[in-house]
Each structure stands twice: as structure tokens, then as C-alpha cells.
Computed example of a mutant assay.
Amino acid sequence: MPDRVLAVLTAPAAGGEADEPYRFVDPAVPLVSAVDLGVTRGDGVFETLGVGEGRAQAVDAHLARLTRSAAMLDLPAPDEEAWRSAVSAVADQLSGHVEAFVKLVYTRGVEGTGQPTGWVLGSPSPDHTVARTEGVRVTVLDRGLSHDSAGNLPWLLQGAKTLSYALNMAAGREARRRGVDDALFVSSDGFLLEGPTSNLLIKDGDRLITPSTSLGILAGTTQAAAFRFASGQGMSTSYEVLPRDVLESADAVWLLSSVRNAAPIREIDGVERRIDVGFTAALNAYLLARRE
């Protein structure tokens, strides 16, 4: 079974003409131009989907978010059907792996051509068993912006999943420098936001809560699935503007992402947190089995 699968979109933007929506390419062969704006300026967007036994998860939600992110960058609207076809084909090639992931990359293309580029790369997932069962330790980092800045500063592209991920990667390195596994951003005025590559989920009694997307955070596909799971369990769900001290009274807290799924937070800045083992196991079982 292949360890890496790559499909290049023939015409990634809506309205393009192509005999075939994609072509498979040897992932070991150089592909991207050195003057592609996705490389030189991070001028593009991406998505990462989980794959379970050859079936891509939450495809509609990820393609909708790819389209929203593209619009925020004034990129041409992606051809969602072409991308869907490529995602399905790449995921199918990974059917021999219990868990895998597929990454969609859509850039402005080679400077001066006006032609965007796009590709879909699939690979087996790392083993996230420890994070899902034993939990992760996090540090809280100031993002440097007030909680109400998103509406006033649209050029900062808050809420878009762009290729400009240097800040997110720097936050992850800072977390590791502090001897922990991950980070959690707060606004400069003390409101909860998101992780560098994840959404925050909080359990308070029979409620599940997540920070509001009005704060300029990325709308999470896995978080949305967690809310559907909770509703099926008779719980209420809510998007809210949450001060940092909510973490202290919460019954349990998780970081959610498409590949790691639900990682319970077991320590925040050196303070141990309780893990809800039963709810975590049930939530991860639901997320791993989803095909929507």
C-alpha cells in the first residue's frame, strides 16, 4: 500500500476547462515552481481532512471552508467538484491504512500568470493514541490582538486557513520550549481563542462550549462534528465569548483537530486538569467513525 499519494488539479478554479479534473503524480518528483506565490509569499489556502479506511471525512465542510478562505484572499473560487473528485481518489489509494489524512493546497500560482495551482496530498496518520487517551499539556500564549479585532482588521485574514502558518508553527515550537505538547491562544484582553492547529472545546455540566467564530478564529469541522455528537447525547451546545478563567471551572477541556481528533487537556501552564475518560473515548469513537 502506498505511503504517500499525490494528485494535481488540472484546473483547480471554477470555470476552468480540463479533460480530467486531476492527474496522479509521483510525490517524489519536484512539482511546485520556485516562483509560485504559495511558496514565495504563502499566498494561498489549505485544508486537512481525516481519512478512515479509505473514506475521507467531512468533505463538504472542508470544501466549503476552502471556498470561504479563498474568498477572503480574493482567490478564484475553487472548483469544488474537481477537488472532491481528487480527494476521493487520493483517499481511496490509502484504504489499506486504518487512519490517514489528505491535505488540499490551493495557491495563487506562478506570479504573473493569473493561473492558480492546486494539489491533494495523502499520507498515513501518525499514531495519536497517547494524545487521545492520556491527554496533552498546554501553555497559554497571548495572540497579541484584542478579542474584538477581527471585524475591524479584515486584512489580517483572521478566520481564513491560509498557507501563512509561520506564526502557528512558532507557537508550537514555543510550547515545546516550555516543555509541553501544545499551545492555546488567548486575546490580549484575556479571552479564549484557539490552538495553533486546533479548536478549543469545553464541557460544563451537560453543555459543550467553544469560543465564538466572531473572534476571528477558524470555524472547526471537527468541532462541528463534536457538537453533533453532543446533541445526539441530549447535551446543549454553544458558541460564546469566553474569558480565560472559564478554564478553571470547566469539567473537562479538549483540543480538536481533523487528524488528532479530540485530545483532552490534562495540564494548563503546570496546573493539572481532570480528564473525562468516558466522554473522550465516546467522542473519539464517533469522530473516527464519521463519514459525513
Rank of each mutant, 00 (worst) to 15 (best):
Met235Phe: 14
Gly234Ala: 03
Pro211Ala: 05
Gly96Gln: 07
Thr129Tyr: 13
Asp92Val: 05
Ala285Leu: 01
Glu53Gln: 12
Arg290Pro: 00
Ala28Asp: 11
Val25Cys: 02
Ala91Glu: 09
Gly220Ala: 07
Asp19Lys: 06
Val105Thr: 15
Tyr165Phe: 09
Arg266Leu: 06
Ala100Pro: 00
Ser198Val: 00
Leu6Ser: 09
Asp142His: 10
Leu200Asp: 08
Val35Tyr: 15
Arg228Pro: 00
Leu283Glu: 10
Leu255Cys: 09
Ala289Tyr: 00
Ile268Gln: 13
Ala70Lys: 11
Gly114Val: 09
Arg55Leu: 03
Lys161Glu: 15
Tyr239Leu: 13
Gln93Arg: 15
Val241Gln: 02
Phe227Gln: 05
Asp182Lys: 12
Leu104His: 04
Val138His: 04
Val140Asp: 03
Asp26Phe: 15
Arg207Ile: 01
Ser188Glu: 04
Asp206Lys: 15
Arg207Phe: 01
Met1Asp: 11
Arg65Tyr: 14
Arg260Leu: 09
Ala58Asn: 08
Asn284Glu: 02
Gly159Cys: 03
Glu99Tyr: 13
Gln57Tyr: 10
Asn168Lys: 00
Ala224Arg: 13
Val277Tyr: 11
Glu134Ile: 06
Glu267Ser: 15
Thr40Trp: 05
Asp60Leu: 05
Leu215Pro: 12
Gly278Leu: 11
Val32Asp: 13
Ala171Lys: 15
Arg290Tyr: 03
Gly38Lys: 12
